[in-house]
């Protein structure tokens, strides 16, 4: 009977650990939301931060995060799709392709702080983009590309071979086959992955410290000329994002309500990432149903 006792104990331990993991997440989310949501208000989401006084908001940071995300995805998606298509459809199976695969894998595991350093050296200083949204978007592109390539490759590999052959047999070019037949079928996988990647970009901070910068000019939200230095739309201005802001006020915040602001900003960040997650899940399921629908 001893083996059975051990089995029971082990099973209970495993169940307890599973419960613990759920509790950790629940505690984590609960803590952030309970502590942070109380602080979140329309004023908090729209007004500028204060350095030493109470009552600062996260308006510019929120705007910067969203703008940076859009910029990053505009650069990442076409390059990532292209590179993914190459790896999945054009790359010959030889040593060179294996080497490229290794390179992509290495790039995907380079720590984001290294990507940030690279951005500082090459984008900010060498190319002279300065601490700017544009430098930040390029750094995040570097950080995000391997994921995008993998997602695209995965999506295309999941397309049944007969679909590709059917299109080629009709006399369609390979490129047209990829863009009109294969990509639509791969779309649910690619889209779901892209949204998750976007969530990752939204929360990234380490790669941005030395590229997009840790400060924001006083933005004039009535000036929508992208060339003006105080316009929010100017991609060549420094921009502190929400995630960077959380880090900064935790390590050097002077405002008396720094803890509350950090909590509120964390809550906003986490809710956004959760929304990305749910959107990805929902969209994936919806598109799957739509594509396999039997009407």
């Amino acid at each position: 009977m001893k083996a059975k006792t051990v089995d029971k104990i082990a099973t209970s331990v495993i169940i307890a650990i599973a419960a613990l993991i759920v509790l950790v997440l629940a505690g984590l989310l609960g803590y952030i939301l309970v502590r942070g949501l109380g602080h979140v208000s329309f004023h908090f989401l729209t007004s500028a931060p204060e350095t030493i006084r109470k009552g600062g908001g996260i308006g510019p940071q929120l705007f910067n995060s969203i703008f940076l995300l859009v910029l990053t995805m505009i650069i990442t998606i076409p390059i990532g799709l292209g590179a993914g298509i190459y790896m999945s459809e054009y790359a010959p199976s030889n040593k060179l392709t294996n080497a490229i695969r290794l390179v992509v894998e290495v790039l995907s595991s380079v720590p984001s702080i290294i990507v940030g350093l690279f951005g500082l050296l090459v984008l900010v200083n060498l190319f002279g983009f300065g601490f700017s949204l544009f430098s930040g978007a390029l750094a995040l592109t570097v950080f995000n590309l391997p994921l995008m390539v993998r997602i695209t490759e995965q999506g295309l590999k999941g397309v049944p071979r007969e679909q590709k052959e059917a299109s080629l047999a009709l006399g369609l070019s390979k490129w047209k086959t990829i863009t009109s037949v294969m990509l639509p079928i791969a779309m649910p996988v690619i889209l779901t992955g892209t949204i998750l990647a976007a969530g990752r970009v939204f929360g990234e901070a380490a790669a941005l410290l030395f590229t997009a910068g840790m400060s924001s000019p006083r933005l004039d939200f009535s000036d929508w000329n992208p060339l003006s230095p105080f316009s929010p739309l100017n991609p060549f201005r420094p921009a502190e994002t929400l995630a960077v802001h959380i880090w900064k006020i935790n390590s050097e915040g002077l405002a008396p309500d720094a803890g509350e602001i950090a909590a509120g900003a964390s809550a906003v960040l986490v809710i956004t990432v959760l929304l990305f997650n749910f959107a990805a899940r929902w969209l994936g399921r919806y598109m799957y149903r739509k594509f396999t629908a039997i009407k």
């Binding site: 007969e162 679909q163 052959e165 059917a166 080629l168 047999a169 009709l170 006399g171 070019s173 037949v181």
Partner: peptide, 20 residues
């Protein structure tokens, strides 16, 4: 090859209509 395939139709073992 692309022009050639237009002249030769093909039908597979399992029906494979496009997802359209």
């Amino acid at each position: 090859v692309v022009s050639l395939r237009q002249r030769i139709g093909m039908v597979w073992q399992r029906p494979n209509p496009f997802h359209k």
